[in-house]
């Protein structure tokens, strides 16, 4: 089993850290993982993306040309990567910031207004990215919630561990929304 994910958005939306967290969660589960960032001359505000592979076997090529899942937090990222997604793959869209429809008909699409959800349910838009990550783990089961929380403990410095409960709630919010949406998709499909 191997899951290849591209995560993309504006710099500052937490795309890189979300990818790292995912990779670390895979590592916590004893899987083979890799994380590659895009890197460019822009330091802040530009588009950022990273590629994460979580696999049961050795990751031969860490370069992802055709992701199984694409997670996009802004419109330019959707436009840039949509065509690359594997046929029948998954697409997670931050509909708070993306007001266009995807072109592809073969993808399993999940739209989440994560900015609003973060504001309404958690009163903090800074954990928007964690909501979409929660939706991703519910959809793919690539890693468990516990592994992500375990990874958080490792990547956050000790004095930031007070943020873990908030992040947990954000992840759970995403999981719940995804579950409802999946049921909805099934009943429609």
């Amino acid at each position: 089993m191997s899951q290849e994910i591209i995560l993309a958005g504006f710099g500052g939306q937490g795309v890189m850290s979300m990818g790292q967290l995912l990779a670390y969660a895979g590592l916590v589960e004893g899987k083979q993982v890799s994380w590659i960032p895009s890197y460019g001359p822009e330091m802040r505000g530009g588009t950022a993306n990273c590629s994460v592979t979580i696999s049961d076997e050795e990751v031969s090529s860490p370069i992802i040309a055709e992701p199984d899942t694409l997670i996009v937090l802004n419109r330019p990222s959707l436009e840039k990567f949509e065509q690359d997604v594997k046929p029948g793959g998954r697409l997670l869209i931050n509909s708070s910031l993306i007001d266009i429809e995807p072109q592809r008909q073969d993808l399993q699409v999940l739209k989440l207004p994560v900015n609003e959800l973060a504001q309404e349910k958690l009163g903090n838009t800074r954990v928007s990215n964690m909501i979409i990550l929660g939706a991703f783990i519910e959809l793919t089961r690539s890693v468990t919630l516990e592994s992500v929380l375990g990874a958080l403990k490792k990547v956050l410095p000790e004095y930031r561990h007070n943020l873990i409960p908030l992040n947990r709630r954000a992840l759970e919010t995403g999981m719940k929304v995804a579950k409802t949406e999946i049921l909805h998709l099934r009943s429609c499909g």
Binding site: Q32, V33, W35, P62
Partner: peptide, 10 residues
Amino acid sequence: DGILGQMMEP
């Protein structure tokens, strides 16, 4: 190369 330098792996 740039990928090896920038990428994260266990």
